[in-house]
C-alpha cells in the first residue's frame, strides 16, 4: 500500500485491553501521520507499553480496530512486524551474544539485503566498530539503549515504536539521539516514542497524554497546554519552602512546584489563583505570570482525571 492510500502511519480507534479483569488500556484512539514524531506520555502504569505492544502484534487487543502502515492490526500482524522497528522498554537483545552477533541476528531474521554491509553500517553509526565483539550483557545501560536503537533501525522500518529509548542515557547522547530521530523523520520515517522527559516531549511534533489507560489529551504542545486549562505564576525570593507550604493550603492553588530558585504556582481558575496569591504579592517576593509548562499541564490533566 502506498503513502497516498494511507496518510496515517497509525490510525486506530477504541483500543482496549484488560489484564485479569482490570482495564489497562481503555478505548484509546490514535492517529499518527507519516513522517511525524509523536510523543506518548503518561504516568507509570498508565498503559503506554501495553498500547505499543498491541500496535505491533505482541498483545491482542480485547476491543478496537485500526490500521498500522495500512495493514489491519488484528488480521495482518506479519505485514506490520516486517515494517516496524520496536524498541522495548527493557533491554531485550541477547546478552550472551556480542554486539555484532546481535545485529547480525536481527539482519537475518528480517532478511535485510546486503546483511554484512548493513551490520557494518549499524556498528559504524553506533561508533562501536572497534568494540563489536564485546558481549551485549557487559555494556553500560546507556550503551545498551543505543545498541537497541541501532538494531531497530537495521531493517529500515517505516515506523519506529520506541519505549522510553532515552531512559538512563546521558545528555549529549540524548541530544544526538534526538537529532538522529529528527533526521530520520525528515526522511519519511514515522516515530512513536514514549518518554517521561518534558524536554523530549517538547521536541515531538505532536503528543498524546494518557493516564489510567484513558486518553486525556492529544495535539501539539500548545494545544495540550490549552486543553489542560491551567494558569501559572512564578515567584522568586527568600524562604520559598515556607511560602510553598503556605500556598499549598490555600484554596485556588492546585500545584506548587519548585524549580531551582523559583516556585511555579498553578491553578485552573485564573481569578481564584490571583486571589489566592494576592496576600503574598509583596516584597521580598517577585511574582510574574508565565506560560504554563507541559509538566504543569500533565499534572493538572492527571489530577482532574483521577478525581472524576
Amino acid at each position: 500500500m502506498s503513502e497516498e492510500d494511507a496518510p496515517f502511519a497509525i490510525d486506530v480507534a477504541g483500543i482496549t485491553k484488560s489484564f485479569d479483569g482490570r482495564v489497562v488500556v481503555d478505548d484509546i484512539p490514535m492517529r499518527v501521520r507519516r513522517g511525524e514524531i509523536f510523543g506518548f506520555l503518561g504516568p507509570n502504569g498508565s498503559g503506554k507499553t501495553t498500547f505499543l505492544r498491541m500496535l505491533c502484534g505482541l498483545l491482542r487487543p480485547d476491543g478496537g480496530q485500526g490500521r498500522c502502515l495500512g495493514f489491519d492490526i488484528l488480521g495482518q500482524p506479519d505485514d506490520i512486524k516486517r515494517r516496524v522497528g520496536y524498541m522495548t522498554q527493557r533491554f531485550s537483545f541477547y546478552e550472551d551474544l556480542s554486539i555484532e552477533e546481535n545485529l547480525d541476528f536481527i539482519a537475518r531474521v528480517y532478511g535485510v539485503p546486503d546483511r554484512r554491509g548493513a551490520v557494518a553500517a549499524g556498528l559504524a553509526r553506533l561508533g562501536m566498530s572497534s568494540r563489536r565483539r564485546q558481549l551485549a550483557g557487559t555494556l553500560s545501560g546507556g550503551w545498551k539503549q543505543r545498541l537497541a536503537l541501532a538494531a531497530c533501525l537495521l531493517h529500515a522500518p517505516e515506523l519506529l515504536l520506541l519505549d522510553e529509548p532515552t531512559a538512563g542515557v546521558d545528555p549529549k547522547a540524548r541530544r544526538e539521539f534526538w537529532d538522529e530521530i529528527h533526521g530520520l523523520a525528515a526522511g519519511g520515517l514515522t516515530v512513536l516514542i514514549t518518554t517521561h522527559y518534558m524536554d523530549e516531549a517538547e521536541r515531538c511534533h505532536r503528543l498524546a497524554y494518557i493516564a489510567y489507560g484513558k486518553l486525556l489529551a492529544q495535539g501539539s504542545v500548545d494545544e495540550i497546554v490549552r486543553q489542560a486549562g491551567i494558569f501559572t505564576w512564578q515567584v522568586q525570593g527568600p524562604r520559598l519552602a515556607e511560602l510553598a507550604t503556605l500556598l499549598r493550603k490555600t484554596p485556588g492553588v492546585e500545584q506548587v512546584a519548585a524549580f531551582g530558585d523559583a516556585l511555579h504556582v498553578s491553578g485552573s481558575d485564573r481569578g481564584a489563583l490571583a486571589a489566592a496569591i494576592a496576600p503574598h504579592r509583596r516584597d521580598p517576593h517577585r511574582w510574574t505570570e508565565i506560560e504554563p509548562g507541559l509538566e504543569d499541564a500533565f499534572i493538572r490533566l492527571m489530577r482532574s482525571s483521577g478525581t472524576q
Binding site: 506479519d78 512486524k81 516496524v84 520496536y86 522495548t88 531485550s92 537483545f93 541477547y94 528480517y110
Partner: peptide, 14 residues
C-alpha cells in the same frame, strides 16, 4: 525469563 521473547515476537519470525 530474560525478556528477549518480546524482541523475538516483534520480529517476523513464525
Amino acid at each position: 525469563e530474560r525478556g528477549t521473547i518480546e524482541m523475538l515476537l516483534a520480529t517476523p519470525a513464525r
